[in-house]
Amino acid sequence: MITDLLSSTVLIGILASGIRLATPYLYAAIGETFGQKSGVLNLGVEGQMLLGSFAAFYVTFRTGNLWLGLLAAILVGALMGLAMAFVTVNLHAKQGISGIGFYLFGLGMSDLLFQKLMGTVETVRGFPRVSIPVVSGIPGIGDIFFNQNILVYGAYVLVPVAWFVLNKTTLGLKIRAVGENPDAADSLGVSVVRIRYFTIILGGMLSGIAGASLSIALLNVFQQNMTSGLGFIAVALVYFGGWRPFGVLVGALLFSFVNSLQLWIQVLGLPIPSDIAVMMPYVLTILVLVATASKIRSPSALTKPFEREG
């Protein structure tokens, strides 16, 4: 039966579902990377995702327009980000803890709105699969990479874009400077406040899209607490990736591939208890990180509020 795992159906299946599963992690974790690069830890990703997820679903359900739904998720995410920015940047609230507050708020609020505005679980017609001409016809590879919906593609496009912005633009330089040494950045005329507002709101928007990718692209339903801890995994993956977009990509894919592997292990009826199978992605993520033990430092000013001297 172990050999079943190596059949092409299974391998393609594992890779294709890994690519899909990684999508929400990528949006949320890239957003979090921007925030942490500028020195802000946001543990409220899960709450932003839930509210974004509901907003996207509700607007799509009412209007039938997926793009309006996506826009709603982005807006709601931005609003949550704005509130988070005000609390952490202006009021200097402890970041880890305010994030937990926003998580609880998003968890409760999305459910409350769901109950009051929807009342029951419904489905929408989500973003359809788009086959990319020519390459989608390649056997195997086509099914894995080029036969997904547009939000899945978006997540993978986001990774190099994020890398480029962070490493090759002045904006990226400013973000990193603010995260490493806000005082120096400030003295050079970079507005720490403005940069952090920007990254936190951007993070909120991307978390909103992460939520939308679940409710109107991958699952096409909304249910209370449907992210079920996904946002926290996304934050963890930022650490896995060492604050580098491509590192985040590796982490998200590793976690997701192992997760789809365990689904297949069960489907193929291998004699492993289901609970132990479910554990696998979590255990392996830690083990891989131990084995590769990188010496990457966190941004120096991470979680430290900025206060101009004097």
Binding site: L91, K94, G108, Q224
Partner: peptide, 21 residues
């Protein structure tokens, strides 16, 4: 709805932690 209770707890956390300034 119990959801309101959770949202309210979130608000309390945000407000308390913000008040520290």
């Amino acid at each position: 709805p119990s959801a309101l209770v959770i949202a309210l707890n979130g608000l309390v956390v945000i407000f308390v932690i913000s008040s520290e300034i």
